[in-house]
Design a protein around this nucleic acid. Structure first.
Length: 668
RNA sequence: GGCGGCGUAGCUCAGAUGGUUAGAGCGACGGACUCAUAACCCGUAGGUCGGUGGUUCGAUUCCACUCGCCGCCA
């Protein structure tokens, strides 16, 4: 183990996500890319810091919260928690999760503002013109005209504001772009950014007085700091910028400037122009690179709330698992370009590459080692096989491609190698007994072939680990190599697998998905919230522990068997939620009124942290109808809503049905 | 409106400073095999490289125009 301080720091982050929208595949895409890069760099011995989080201030949030009848903070808490749950459920390895409503962030933003002010880059002025609430931007449009950007109505405002002298930075920025060709990737984005800056930069208004939900300007509290300045600063405040504590300062010194800032193309101007200008003005170093990726289109059209074609990651996690989603996003889409998502393509990729390719290769190889060598990795004769040099080439090539964030080609390269190993095994036919060949010679040949195949799998597994960590961990264990997270993968070389290694317990890695998986996912999306139903457990690779229809506890928990009569005592029925509201003074409780067809009743359920009340109205759930009444927070609860429990925090996921079902129907 | 990108097999995309039969993967079809997850392996299909016109001995690759999609800016 190397001492952590010896390692080279590597700081990577996603943008922080605006809590105006709930997490969808676009967020997942960026975050998965960052996670993969972080895992890869860790594996290569870097001291990685991976940051993500949520952006929570601004007028839009204030208004959405009002509309929902909540405080802005409560509203932000809820959505931020959803992001956090999702990332936790996907097993992402972010080292920190910043929220712009945290004190550490506020402190840092105010410090940055003060710093810019003291350095003379901020002055007071008045703006009169149109403002787009949706984009949180002053727009150049005549009175009454819609926003030229998003088409929504703009508002007439006249405000006294603080301005940042952005106009002073045009030449400096251009010089910097020129001197650092890799500062913004891909090149097409760099060109766009440079064209924008060449067009001339105007000073930027960086405060608002028209609303309150934000960080106050130090010493002039009726002003709130512009959301973008607030948000962008998270990349340094999360490290400790603005704090006087020695450990915070040390962290900031260590990790800043960032190595890779990932972002979607819609926010490249803020990240590649404003943010560097703020940093220059503050006398801070600039990030080493911005990597701008494209959009994820859903079956050819842009995913958007209004189109109603947003796909949630949860749906895919339920049916195929996190690795399938990660693999698809990084393999199918050329990083930097727009990509298209469809359930069809997802399942096709899953079957062709993960099930038939990687999964099957592992299966055929390890099964034969079990059969012919009693589950112990055989000796190699030392003879060089065709795949050996190919493995070496793949190691080098894949490393380079990961470094340049060319995930799709990295994976393509690995899969070319997988195919080569399949061809090698088929050509060598270790299952065949050659006519007249003595058993000893036959065994030696088998040993050589199977050692070569197993060693190839070890290398493949190490290479794919950053992309499909769950599967890689399983294969690693099946190879008898223990915990992959403890493995030193820095110097991957052919021959690292020791003959004599006892294989672990074998089992499927990626079971083939049936066509039906597609319809199942589509139905889940249509049904609204993704849910972990009994159907989800039909695919054994689903990350949710296989749970029976009634999944109040994970199936892994030991259960004594019961008779059918015992089960019959539990009256499970389908009920439709008619009313859902928070219980005052309880963070976790919702008061529900449900319709059973023959009666309406009140149930108090501990699901408030996972479900917004309004999202539940009309939803059909399963309840235990004959549970003795109980009082919770003074409210009588007549029954219990059935839900699975996910993760260590026990996040509830409501049970439901894919087919439409009659209210009141009994489960038996 | 200005600037830029893209349009190649059913699908996702490579590629060519212009030159013999335009490539890969997936899907489809045929065959072989049986260690393996109806898998793997071998083989086949056929696309006038968006349209029109031009330059050229020769263009899908260059030029002009045109249609469609997209991005940045106004």
């Amino acid at each position: 183990m190397t001492n952590k301080t010896d390692k080279i720091p590597f700081y990577v982050m996603t943008p922080i996500y605006y809590v105006n929208a709930r997490p969808h595949l676009g967020h997942t895409y960026t975050t998965v890319a960052a996670d993969t890069l972080a895992r890869y760099k860790r594996m290569r011995g870097f001291d990685v810091r991976f940051l993500t989080g949520t952006d929570e201030h601004g007028q839009k949030i204030e208004r959405s919260a009002n509309k929902a009848g909540k405080t802005a903070q409560a509203f932000a808490d809820e959505i931020s928690a959803e992001f956090r749950f999702l990332w936790a459920r996907m097993g992402l390895t972010n080292d920190d999760y910043i929220r712009t409503t945290e004190p550490r962030h506020k402190r840092g933003v105010q410090r940055l503002f003060t710093e810019l002010q003291q350095r003379g880059y901020i002055y007071k002025g008045t703006y009169t013109g149109q403002y787009c609430v949706s984009d949180e931007l002053y727009v150049d449009a005549p009175e009454g005209a819609p926003c030229p950007d998003c088409g929504r109505p703009t508002e007439r405002v006249s405000e006294e504001n603080y301005y940042f002298k952005l106009s002073e930075f045009g030449d400096k920025l251009l010089a910097y772009y020129e001197a650092h060709p890799d500062f913004i990737r891909p090149e097409s984005r760099r060109n766009e950014v440079m064209a924008f800056v060449r067009g001339g930069l105007k000073d930027l208004s960086i405060s608002r007085t028209s609303f309150n939900w934000g960080i106050p300007v130090p010493g002039d509290e009726k002003h709130v700091i512009y959301v973008w300045m607030d948000a962008l600063a998270n990349y340094i405040t999360a490290l400790g910028y603005g704090s006087d504590a020695p450990e915070d300062q040390a962290r900031f010194q260590k990790y800043w400037p960032a190595d890779v800032q990932l972002l979607g193309k819609e926010i490249s101007r803020f990240h590649c122009v404003y943010w560097p200008a703020f940093l220059m003005a503050a006398g801070l170093p600039l990030p080493k690179s911005f990597v701008v990726h494209g959009w994820l289109l859903f079956e050819q059209s842009k995913m958007s709330k209004s189109r109603g074609n947003i796909v949630r990651a949860e749906t895919i996690l339920d049916v195929l698992g996190a690795d399938a989603l990660r693999y698809f996003l990084l393999r199918e889409i050329v990083f930097g370009q727009d990509g298209s998502f469809s359930f069809d393509a997802l399942v096709q990729r899953y079957n062709a590459d993960l099930a038939n390719g990687y999964g099957n290769l592992v299966s055929r190889t390890l099964t034969m080692i079990g059969k012919y060598f009693d589950g112990v990795v055989p000796e190699s004769t030392g003879e060089v096989e065709t795949v050996t040099p190919e493995a070496r080439t793949a190691i080098v090539k894949v490393g380079g491609l990961f470094d340049s964030l060319d995930f799709s080609r990295a994976l393509e390269t690995i899969w070319v190698f997988i195919a080569a190993v399949d061809i090698y095994i088929t050509a060598s036919a270790p299952w065949k007994q050659g006519a007249g060949v003595p058993d000893k010679v036959q065994q030696q040949h088998r040993g050589q072939v199977l050692y070569t195949a197993a060693e190839s799998i070890r290398i493949i597994t190490a290479l794919v680990y950053p992309v499909i960590p769950d599967a890689a961990a399983k294969v690693w264990a099946q190879l008898g190599l223990g915990d992959i997270t403890q493995a030193d993968l820095k110097d991957l070389e052919w021959g690292g697998l020791k003959p004599g290694t006892k294989l672990g317990t074998l089992g499927p890695i990626f079971p083939r998905a049936e066509k039906e998986a597609i319809t199942r996912m589509q139905e889940k999306e249509e049904a609204g919230l993704a849910e972990s139903t009994a159907a989800a457990t039909q695919v054994p690779s689903a990350p949710v522990a296989a749970a029976p229809v009634v999944a109040a506890a994970p199936a892994v928990a030991e259960t004594k068997t019961i008779t059918i009569d015992d089960f019959a005592k539990v009256e499970l029925r389908v009920a439709q939620i008619k009313v859902a509201e928070r219980v005052a003074g309880a963070d976790r409780l919702l008061r529900l009124e449900v319709d059973l067809g023959y009666e309406q009743r009140q149930i108090v359920a501990g699901i408030a942290e996972a479900y917004a009340p309004e999202s539940l109205i009309g939803r059909k759930v399963v309840i235990v109808a004959n549970l003795a009444p109980r009082k919770l927070r003074g409210l009588e609860s007549n029954g219990m809503v059935v839900a699975a429990s996910l993760g260590e925090k026990g996040k509830p996921v409501l049970a439901g049905f894919l087919e439409d079902i009659e209210i009141g129907a009994r489960l038996k």
